[in-house]
C-alpha cells in the first residue's frame, strides 16, 4: 500500500522534473538564438567610443552614433542601395521565371519531367557561388561586369531552384478541380489562373519572393567576386573587414540582420509548408 503510494509520488516527481527540464531546455535554446542578437543590438545602439571601450555594459545606451557613422561612411549608402536593387531584381526574376515551372511541375505529366526535376535538385549539390568565377570573365566580355543586373543574374541562379520547388508545393496545395470548375464556368486557362489560382496563391508567392530577396541580400561570395565599384552591402563590409573600425562592422552587421528578422516573421506561416513538400 505505502509502496504503491511512494511509486506514484516518485512518478509524478519524475514527470514534473522532466517537464521542468523540458521547459528549461526550450528557454535555453531560445536564449542561445536571442542573446547574441541582443549583444549586437547593444553595440549598434552605443556610441563608437563605448563600442571600443572595455568592459562593456550589457544594457544599450541608445546612442545613434555608430549608426550615424555607418550612414556617413563613404560608399556605404550606395552599397546599401546596390544591395536593395540587386535583391529586388533577384526577387522579381526568380518568381517570374520560377513560378511557371512550379506550376508546370504541379499540374502536368510530361516527358522529361523527371529530368527537369533532376536539374533543379542538382543545383543543390553544388556550391553555386563558385560559378561567379567563370561568370566574372563572361560578364567582362558582355559588359555585365560590376552591374547590379549581372550580380542579380547569379543570385537568381541561387534563388531559382527554391522558387521552383516552393511554388511547386504551393500550386500543388490548390486542388486542380478549382481550376477545372473555372474552365467549365466560362474561363480560359489564363483567366482561370488569374481569377482563381492567383488570388489563392498570392500570399505564398509573396513569401517565396521574400525568400529570394533574402537569399540575394545575404550572399557574400559572388557579390564580392562580381562587383568592384558597385559593391553590395555584404561585399562592401567584407572588403572593409580588415581595416574598418569595430563600430562600423557592428552597425553594418545590424543593418544586414534587420531584414532577416522581418523576413522570418513575414513568412513564418509558410516556412514549414514550403519546406515540407518542396524537399521531398
Amino acid at each position: 500500500m505505502t509502496d504503491a503510494a511512494t511509486t506514484l509520488v516518485d512518478q509524478s516527481r519524475t514527470r514534473s522534473s522532466g517537464r521542468w527540464l523540458y521547459a528549461a531546455s526550450i528557454t535555453l535554446l531560445c536564449a542561445w538564438v536571442i542573446v547574441p542578437l541582443y549583444l549586437l543590438l547593444i553595440n549598434t545602439l552605443s556610441a563608437p567610443e563605448t563600442v571600443n571601450s572595455f568592459p562593456k555594459s550589457f544594457i544599450p545606451e541608445f546612442d545613434l552614433g555608430s549608426l550615424q557613422f555607418f550612414a556617413g561612411f563613404r560608399g556605404m549608402l550606395e552599397a546599401l542601395r546596390n544591395s536593395i536593387v540587386v535583391a529586388l531584381l533577384t526577387m522579381v526574376m526568380s518568381v517570374l521565371i520560377g513560378a511557371p515551372a512550379g506550376y508546370a511541375l504541379s499540374r502536368f505529366e510530361f516527358r522529361g519531367k523527371e529530368l527537369f526535376r533532376m536539374l533543379i535538385l542538382l543545383t543543390r549539390a553544388f556550391p553555386l557561388p563558385l560559378l561567379a568565377l567563370p561568370l566574372a570573365v563572361l560578364f567582362i566580355r558582355t559588359g555585365l561586369d560590376d552591374t547590379a543586373f549581372g550580380l542579380a543574374l547569379v543570385h537568381t541562379t541561387l534563388a531559382l531552384p527554391f522558387a521552383v520547388l516552393i511554388t511547386f508545393s504551393l500550386f500543388s496545395g490548390i486542388p486542380v478541380e478549382l481550376e477545372e470548375a473555372a474552365w467549365t464556368l466560362g474561363c480560359t486557362r489564363l483567366t482561370a489562373f488569374t481569377k482563381v489560382v492567383l488570388p489563392l496563391i498570392l500570399p505564398g508567392i509573396t513569401a517565396s519572393a521574400i525568400f529570394a530577396f533574402v537569399i540575394s541580400w545575404n550572399e557574400v561570395f559572388a557579390a564580392a567576386v562580381l562587383t568592384i565599384e558597385n559593391r553590395t552591402l555584404t561585399a562592401f563590409l567584407l572588403q572593409t573587414l580588415g581595416e574598418a573600425p569595430m563600430h562600423l562592422k557592428f552597425a553594418g552587421g545590424f543593418i544586414l540582420v534587420v531584414p532577416a528578422l522581418i523576413f522570418i516573421f513575414a513568412v513564418r506561416k509558410y516556412l514549414f509548408a514550403m519546406w515540407g513538400i518542396a524537399n521531398r
Binding site: 486542388p175 477545372e180 467549365t184 480560359t188 488570388p199 489563392l200
Partner: peptide, 20 residues
C-alpha cells in the same frame, strides 16, 4: 472545343467551391 464553349456545367466530387 475548350470546356467553356461546350454549353456544359459541372459539379465536382469535392465541390470545388472557390475558397476566396
Amino acid at each position: 472545343l475548350p470546356p467553356k464553349d461546350r454549353g456544359i456545367a459541372m459539379v465536382f466530387q469535392n465541390y470545388a467551391v472557390f475558397p476566396h
